[in-house]
């Protein structure tokens, strides 16, 4: 069927208005491309500092995305499906990272880690990381991963009791088999670190902002999913948890991918909090946005633009992959 003239005009009007924004983005990219040279791009890509910044950007953004989703899914679901005292206040509270100037977030994080609890935490991550990972993190993760087997026990309550027992058992095995003694110093050496001005601060600064975007996206996603299917699942004998995991979350899959993409993209572009909270130390806490700042500071806008184009390229590739992969599947 040939579309009518009014349909064509309607879509043309929409395309014109939307196209203006697309043209603006395209024009900026073209201007950037002509401002720099292939030589600058190649030099940027070859620089060990920039290679490090690319690597740190990718790793920190993925960790941030993962952490954001861990927080955003339960929080978004709670805000969408439940009504409790103080909910509007909490809702507004979660928007604070979105409205605060980025520099303030960085400064607030920096101040937080100068308080007694912050310093204590930094002391733990710096000096006790091997111990914490060996005797707390590994046993806890092992026990949780053993849940599919524990859940076969006759009663759920019994299974839940065995969860901490399993964790303690793993910790005891690690302690007395000698594996813990072997592992602890190695993990300490590899992962023992301060937080401020170190890599964890980059992730924390990105997380502080990205998570707010992810929470907002997940909340809207759950708002748009009718609770009716969940209620049907409950009438058919599902527990609340089963209804969430088997019905709601698969329905929210596209929202989850979108929240992940937004969190990732936001993390990649994050600059202000990182500069304040992590500093801009080359080969340590330098991410791509920091590189742009460093190049601009020494009068090399062409190099800054080259790095910016690299960021655009990396972002397009990763977002296309994430969305392509995410939108294809309909369930976990």
């Amino acid at each position: 069927m040939t579309p009518s003239g009014s349909t064509v005009r309607f879509y043309a009007g929409l395309a014109l208005i939307g196209g203006l924004y697309v043209v603006l983005i395209l024009a900026m990219l073209i201007a950037d491309t002509f401002y720099t040279t292939p030589g600058n791009l190649w030099d940027s890509f070859r620089s060990p500092e920039i290679q490090y910044a690319i690597k740190l950007s990718l790793v920190s953004c993925f960790v941030t995305t993962l952490l954001s989703l861990w927080v955003a899914v339960p929080l978004g679901y709670l805000l969408s499906r439940t009504r409790f005292y103080g909910r509007p206040v909490l809702d507004a509270f979660l928007d604070i990272p979105l409205v605060l100037p980025p520099l303030v977030i960085g400064l607030s994080l920096l101040i937080l880690f100068q308080t007694a609890p912050g310093k204590w935490l930094e002391g733990v991550t710096q000096n006790q990381m091997g111990f914490v990972l060996t005797y707390f993190a590994i046993p806890a993760v092992s026990a949780i991963l053993a849940w599919p087997f524990l859940s076969r026990l006759p009663s759920r309550a019994e299974a839940l009791i065995y969860l901490p027992v399993a964790a303690v058992l793993v910790a005891v095995i690690l302690r007395y088999s000698g594996a813990g003694a072997w592992l602890e110093p190695r993990l300490q050496e590899r992962f023992g670190t301060r937080i401020t001005y170190e890599i964890p601060s980059v992730i924390l600064a990105q997380f502080a902002v990205s998570c707010a975007f992810a929470v907002r996206t997940m909340r809207v996603t759950f708002d748009q999913i009718s609770p009716r299917t969940e209620q049907v699942a409950l009438t058919l004998g599902c527990t609340r948890s089963q209804a969430f995991w088997m019905v709601s979350l698969p329905e929210a899959w596209r929202g989850l991918v979108t929240a992940g993409s937004i969190a990732w993209a936001r993390a990649l572009g994050e600059f202000g909090p990182i500069l304040i909270f992590s500093g801009a130390t080359r080969m340590r806490t330098e991410v791509l946005s920091t590189t742009v700042f460093l190049e601009l500071s020494v009068g090399r806008p062409e190099a800054a633009i080259a790095v910016s184009l690299l960021m655009v390229f990396v972002a397009i590739v990763v977002l296309l992959l994430m969305r392509g992969f995410g939108m294809r599947g309909g369930a976990i």
Binding site: I144, L145, W147, P148, S151, S241, Q242, W245, M246, L249, I332
Partner: peptide, 9 residues
């Protein structure tokens, strides 16, 4: 599907 939370984790 039954163990979805644990698979995700």
């Amino acid at each position: 599907t039954r163990n979805a939370p644990w698979v995700a984790f």
